[in-house]
Write a protein that binds this DNA or RNA. Structure first.
Ligand code: FES
Ligand code: FES
Lengths: 145, 145
DNA sequence: ATAATAATTGACAGTTTTAGTCGGGTATGT
DNA sequence: ACATACCCGACTAAAACTGTCAATTATTAT
């Protein structure tokens, strides 16, 4: 039951991007240096984040990445979805309309309920909240405990 | 973010064990046949379940496994813990007293909060509830939705 | 005692997933 | 033209997962 480092990196990179964004594009090289994540690996992640409508890219010199939407409208679960990390704990209920639970699935409700809790929690946190928290000014949110 | 099949098997096996238990020990061979899980793999799991004080073993002919405690006192998270599947989504906060969050961990609260939700949910479900549900008589519990 | 039963244990191998690299391409501003 | 920076797919090494095998020990029935 581990969140892959891919997902962890994606969230960290997004917070960092938002933190150092002043309206002009932020390069992956900067994020790479600040977060100690391999540049080529970051590129891989940002291709997916762009496709997931989390960021948009600006090519050429002076280019880089910008948020595709206001930070307030970007939820953590969307970031993780974008880099193709499933948030569902069992493979049988991946994307299809519920899993084909014939009869022998006594544990179905356990995994289904768990998936729901995970999704609910991660969708309740926005990139803006994380960024404010990183700045040392906790917003109105209550992330844990 | 996947629950390993090891953990899934362990929970299924425990429900099955409790379901067909009439006071005398249940053999792994029976569980193996009913749940279509390799006997040798089950053996591996039950060694750990015994160490985790979930079941107790009776050796020799007529032997098998029994619950170490009443089903009402066995929670799903304990079963998963026993087979050594971590319920914490990030490795840095594995068992030690919180992780060494120096300064650059802007996502700490996300994973910590997530771990808490997962633990809370799985500890709220007992083996007894699952067994009753499997019998088609939902207890007083509300597992999901 | 002896044989049959069933748990116990450690080592091992095949497969899949993860994490990350590499090499080349494409668009754009100066 | 040229440097910058994104874009993309193939590739690989390492780890984890899933499961098997062989050998042993403890207990009970005969
Ligand atoms: S088929 Fe997915 S839990 Fe039953
Ligand atoms: S060290 Fe674990 S989240 Fe910071």
């Amino acid at each position: 039951m581990r969140m892959s480092t891919k997902a962890q990196y994606a969230v960290r990179a997004m917070v960092n991007l938002n933190l150092y964004s002043d309206g002009s594009p932020v390069t992956l090289r900067d994020i790479s240096l600040r977060e100690s994540i391999s540049l080529t690996y970051l590129e891989q992640l940002f291709v997916k984040l762009r496709r997931g409508d989390i960021v948009k890219s600006v090519r050429g010199p002076g280019g880089g990445y910008l948020l595709a939407r206001p930070a307030k409208e970007i939820q953590v679960d969307e970031i993780i979805d974008s880099v193709e990390e499933s948030l569902v704990p069992v493979s049988c209920m991946d994307q299809k309309r519920g899993c084909v639970c014939d009869d022998r699935c006594v544990t179905h409700n356990v995994w289904h309920g768990l998936a729901e809790r995970i999704r609910d929690f991660l969708s309740s946190i926005t990139l803006e909240e994380l960024t404010l928290e990183a700045k040392g000014m906790p917003g109105k949110s209550k992330t844990n405990s």
